[in-house]
Amino acid sequence: MFEAMAFYFFSAVTIVMFWITVTSKNALYSMSALAAGMIMISGFFFLLDADFLGVVQIIVYTGAVMALYAFGMMFFDTTREVKENIRAPKLVFLLSGMTALLLVIAFVAPIVGDHIEALYPMVEGVENPQAVGIVLFTKYLVPFEVAAVMLLVAMIAGIILAGKKMDESLTLKIDDEFQEKGVQ
């Protein structure tokens, strides 16, 4: 009962938050709503006994990614409303709706292989973080290390891309100057 209530609650909040994210005209609102949605999603992970994943969700997404966005947004003028020329909004909803509907149909239909045998089954009496650790550092060691390298590369790339000419103020410049720079 508690599980069901929690599920519906989290579902409703997540959907609303994400909807705000994709529709809001203010980038700051969008980001805040996104961060809230991320935290709500970690709730699902706790419900699903994936404690470690839930913690990672909060730390990485809400902590790191969102912070990154927040810092990144300092470069942009976020106080202005985002002006967008949205064309054929009905088409967008039709496409997204159809895709979601099809996914639902696919999921509701009998799943291929009802008798899947677990490749790395949950071990009884072992806490989730421990089990994750065991699998991650045995079976998925190489991908894990590769992912680590990838993160390092991404970090360096991010620093180099964003770090150039940090001393110049971007928000206060006039448009013409930007155009001039673009031409160079």
Binding site: L95, T99, L102, L103, I105, A106, A109, V112
Partner: peptide
């Protein structure tokens, strides 16, 4: 791309083995 995704999904559903 979304249109393509839709078409592929349709194909996946209609031609799924189950």
């Amino acid at each position: 791309m979304g249109v393509g995704l839709l078409i592929l999904l349709l194909a996946a559903i209609f031609y799924s083995p189950v």
